[in-house]
Write a protein that binds this DNA or RNA. Sequence first.
DNA 1: CGTAGTTACGTACACCGTACGTAGTGCGGT
DNA 2: ACCGCACTACGTACGGTGTACGTAACTACG
Lengths: 245, 245
Amino acid sequence: MAGRAAEPEVIWARPERAGRGPKPAYSRRDIVDAAVRIADADGIDAVSMRRVAAELGCGTMSLYNYVPRKEDLYELMVDAVSGEYAFPEEPSGDWRADMTVIAHQSRAIMYRHPWLARVMTTAYAFSPNALRFLEWCLGCLVPLDVPPGLKMQLIAMVNGTVMATVANEQAIAERARGLPWSEAEEQAVRGAYLMGQVAGGRYPHLAGLLAEAPAAPVDADEIFDMTIARLLDSFAPPEDPLTAA
Amino acid sequence: MAGRAAEPEVIWARPERAGRGPKPAYSRRDIVDAAVRIADADGIDAVSMRRVAAELGCGTMSLYNYVPRKEDLYELMVDAVSGEYAFPEEPSGDWRADMTVIAHQSRAIMYRHPWLARVMTTAYAFSPNALRFLEWCLGCLVPLDVPPGLKMQLIAMVNGTVMATVANEQAIAERARGLPWSEAEEQAVRGAYLMGQVAGGRYPHLAGLLAEAPAAPVDADEIFDMTIARLLDSFAPPEDPLTAA
DNA sequence: CGTAGTTACGTACACCGTACGTAGTGCGGT
DNA sequence: ACCGCACTACGTACGGTGTACGTAACTACG
């Protein structure tokens, strides 16, 4: 009889392998890496157990010896790429600068793995690398003199904002995948509908806004920086200009 | 020959019905309402074309006369519940107050339809009710004297923050659905893992934080209010206290 | 040295979205 | 008036999904 009872468990606490039986042909990491490879190349929806098994060259059901459920595979994937954060030895002492760097790293990782932002909203957990991340953030925030709960709020908001921003950017591109027409056509049709509606006169403010800034090729990086800066500002005690120094 | 060519189109521009042939037994709205009902009751993953058809008492494929693709159904669902915003006749003139009300309404709708936050990150579009929402927000922001692009950023950030907050809250509950054990067991196991890791001594800052605020049953509503207020503060010109009045 | 636990993995089931074909219906044009 | 055709409803079928279960081979432990 294979398999184990469906008892509540967390993938991180489950030992990778036991000592009995034949030597496993793969490691949990092998499977996760293959899944990440597929998701990077063909999108998260292309990650099926059969596809991962094919990538590794093994039978589909063999994967279930390493990963009990597919959702766990998602958690493992998120944790794996969360290992890409590169933190220095020590926080710089400037919490604003440190948090800005963290936000940029998060964004970079989400660009490197365009499925991350979406999956994180579902499969976020206190994985090992998530704890490492949290610990680093808290270390950076030591100079910030606010209650602990507020620090967690700050981290959550920076994180959430980065995720929401990137997820929103990528939703359009991801949606185009598997559509019977191209992304350009999709955007053209949607843009045409928007313009048609706005031209109808029912949305004067929106019309005014679109008229004022007709073709504003705003720099996404710049907006991102501004957004994060604004967010951090909102946590800095306004009447204490020495805090950030 | 039924069906129509797979040309780029937007569901909002597609006419609901044409005049020929037999009278349709349902309306697009009927289908969307059924889908919303199912999603409210059993989660978004329970919304399948077969299930919706069963709810309506018609054949599965009949739905495709009303909705060309399932993804369009998602968009229609988001738009439908976006119709639940109740706006007064005119903005109050206090943009901070108005935006706070909007954020609260968004949150209430997302609680009423626990699938919304997740689906919106994928199926957000310039639907009719989204335009209505945007127009109302811009109307509220008329007293705020900043460039138009910044107003859009503000709206996007408030929206994104509400979504991220609620989605994060609901991810745990949604994840528990369809799990072979209960949500309480899930949380217990995850909490135990977290505590075990933190007790290991590798995460001193995190340990300190958890020790300081041991059982802090913080009020989610209060945190939400604070977060939104903070966000709005960050857009208010700091050296002009008259703006908000 | 048996045996129990583990590995690999083929088969099977329930479910999914949806392409396609068919039959019936009722409006528009002649 | 009536014919044709666009449109309706919908059954069947295909290729996909996650995964429960059974079987056979293998190895470390009592």
